[in-house]
């Protein structure tokens, strides 16, 4: 069976390998147990670095949105990182809607509320977010509101609002320009600003996560 561990009694009378011995069995069984056991023990030591349960438990927040005036923006903290809530002006919405989708570097909406949809302004705005049962939100307000993770999709810096070539957001770290719908237009960032899952839970409040 194996020649890894020749034993005195392993040699037959004609000098050829005889039947496997108990030593061969122990050798292979131990090696196998170490390999498999090692893999099992390794996993807890890798997985301990993943987000812990209390970190996961903090994964949703509620925040008011209705008091924002047109042209105003607030930043809230969600999962340890910033999220932008912006009530866009008519001009900003118009500018975002004029863009031809085919000309965008990233044509995916990057909206967790509407996975895989094209990056149109409708799919990026709060029109794409779910409204809880019994809650009525003005359509114009939903069109104007945009909620996005405030980390540049390049390397995670926080972009500056109302700046850049497209008057949307501009990331100072490596010069990524986003438009008024938070879509990447120029610079090293590969994707549009990500939109977290959120729901209108009342006339005044959204829940993120």
């Amino acid at each position: 069976m194996t020649d890894v561990n020749p034993s005195p009694e392993g040699q037959g009378p004609d000098g050829h390998e005889a039947e496997p011995t108990r030593r061969d069995f122990i050798y292979i069984a131990t090696g196998g147990a170490v390999a498999v056991g090692g893999a099992f023990v390794l996993w807890p030591f890798i997985d301990q670095m993943n987000p812990a349960r209390d970190t996961l438990a903090l994964a949703s927040i509620r925040t008011p949105f209705s008091e924002l005036e047109a042209g105003e923006q607030v930043t809230v903290m969600w999962r340890g990182g910033p999220v932008f809530l912006r009530h866009r002006t008519e001009a900003e919405i118009a500018a975002a809607r004029e863009v031809e989708l085919a000309s965008l570097p990233d044509r995916d909406s990057r909206n967790e509320n509407r996975e895989g949809s094209p990056a149109s302004d409708e799919n990026r705005s709060a029109l794409a977010a779910e409204v809880a049962e019994g809650v009525e939100i003005d359509e114009g307000l939903r069109t104007a509101l945009i909620v996005m993770k405030a980390n540049c999709t390049h390397l995670g810096c926080v972009p500056v609002g109302e700046a850049g070539d497209y008057n949307g957001w501009f990331c100072p770290c490596h010069g990524s320009h986003y438009d008024t719908a938070g879509r990447i237009r120029r610079g090293p960032a590969p994707e549009n600003l990500h939109i977290p899952p959120y729901t209108f839970v009342s006339e005044t409040t959204i829940q993120i996560g």
Partner: peptide, 11 residues
């Protein structure tokens, strides 16, 4: 996995 969370933080 590197962060131990959803952002750079205490972990």
């Amino acid at each position: 996995w590197l962060w131990g969370g959803f952002s750079v933080g205490n972990e």
